[in-house]
Simulated assay, not measured.
Amino acid sequence: MNALQQEIAVIIAEEGPISLERYMSLCLSHPRLGYYTTHNPFGASGDFITAPEISQMFGELLGVWMIEAWTAAGNPEASRLVELGPGRGTLMSDVLRVARIAPNFLANMAVDLVETSPLLRDLQRQMLAGETVPISWRADFGEVPRAPVFVLANEFFDALPARHFVKTATGWRERLVGLDRAGALVFGLAPNPEPGLAVPAPEGSVIEVNGIAQRLMAEIAERIVADGGVMLAVDYGYAQTTLGESLQAVARHGYVDPLQTPGEADLTTHVDFAALKRAAMARGAKVQGPVGQGAFLKQLGIERRAEALMKKADAGQREDIASALARLAGSGDPRERMGDLFKAMAIMHPDTPDLPGFAE
């Protein structure tokens, strides 16, 4: 039993079983023992690889897209370029590099990186040390100054804690984390049904609800409607709300038990894009998508960009570029190809024209 497991066991012994949402929060964000507090999870030497780490093409295309979004929004002055969960800073580095083709864009931007991990903040500072655009770090989106905001969220919403509800003979009951007789962490159910939850479904069905993600999306959409701007969210998940659970724990590029060694594995759930879309539209925002990441990147020209890079590459590099293209935009096994499971969705002011990447 590791240190965080012991601490969680004490909380449960004193207060009773805790929600999955609270358990995920402790595992990921505990100030001393949380996963993102203590780990650099990115890259081949970490626990997983995100799209910006696979190829520069991903960040370059998102940078071009964001420049077009800023232009479509009317070239607002004194804007904020915001990234939620910036990882090692790779995506922002690629975006800022390609943005040099649009000096007016950079001249009107200050960068805000929403990051709680001191370890990752240090990595981001190293990655972005040579940039001339003003860069600030924020603990949450609410700290970003009021201004038109242009927000990037790549593989961010999947890491926000969720709740599970299980259909029983007496109604929907919340899944909790408790202790067995030996003191190990186990899943159980709340003793009483959840009031107000009356979704028809067979017994044994599970509903996964990410209220934290929906509230954050509502906050961002409200800011965009009030101050202007655009958000691009790219993540893995479902285009439509569906029954079922998707909690997974990943360590060293493999799946592990989410209740074993808490704080030492990344915990995520698939993003419910339909729920996020409803949250944004309820605040008056215009939404495009979600569409598959593959379709989105192909419409932005990833195949042409790959061809251009290959012309300057040797044989080994051409093979790497082709492999990256297939992984980022290809269809098939979602463990190897991100084109279908990953989705892209844009949130914008209702007066903003349609943006590229979302054509049917």
Rank of each mutant, 00 (worst) to 15 (best):
P202M: 08
H270S: 13
V114H: 05
I18S: 00
A295K: 00
S55F: 02
G339S: 12
W172D: 08
E303G: 00
L120W: 02
T38C: 15
P145T: 06
D351Y: 06
S55P: 04
I67H: 03
E208K: 10
P200M: 11
L20I: 15
V95P: 00
I12F: 02
R327Q: 15
L216Y: 12
E219T: 14
N75S: 15
I18F: 00
M231P: 00
E131V: 04
A285F: 07
V199R: 14
I18Q: 01
R318K: 15
A153M: 10
I135E: 09
M217I: 12
K312I: 07
Q126D: 14
L355F: 02
L243T: 12
P41M: 04
R80P: 00
T268Q: 08
T168E: 09
A282Y: 03
I347R: 03
Q288S: 15
Q214T: 08
V114I: 14
A107L: 11
L216F: 11
I207V: 14
F156K: 10
L96K: 02
R88L: 14
V111W: 01
E143T: 15
L232A: 09
A285D: 12
E174S: 05
M109N: 05
T50V: 09
D180W: 07
Q293K: 10
A184R: 15
D272M: 08
T168G: 14
L243R: 09
A190V: 03
I67T: 04
E174A: 10
N210E: 13
G178I: 01
G244F: 12
L4H: 04
P191C: 08
A201Y: 08
L61W: 03
E222H: 12
S29I: 00
I220T: 07
L113C: 09
E194P: 01
V199H: 09
G196L: 10
D112P: 00
L84E: 07
A129I: 12
A279Q: 06
A239T: 15
R252T: 10
E219M: 13
R22D: 04
V151Y: 01
E131Q: 15
V166S: 00
P350L: 12
V225I: 10
E360L: 13
N40V: 09
E222L: 06
R100F: 06
G183H: 08
E303F: 04
N108C: 13
T268F: 11
K277Y: 00
P350M: 13
Q317V: 08
G237C: 10
R327N: 08
A324R: 07
P76C: 13
Q288M: 13
L179I: 12
E219W: 03
A239H: 07
V144A: 08
A78Q: 14
L123P: 01
A73C: 15
P52T: 05
K286G: 10
E222Q: 15
A198K: 13
V144Y: 05
G130R: 12
P202S: 13
V271L: 11
F141T: 08
G43R: 05
A280W: 02
R100P: 05
E219I: 00
G332I: 09
A139Y: 03
A159W: 01
L176W: 01
V271R: 03
F150Q: 05
A107C: 02
G63H: 01
P17Y: 01
T170H: 12
K167I: 04
E131N: 07
P161E: 07
E115K: 06
G228R: 03
G85P: 10
V151K: 03
I302F: 02
G339F: 05
A315Q: 14
G228A: 11
T352L: 12
G316L: 13
L297I: 05
P17D: 10
L91F: 06
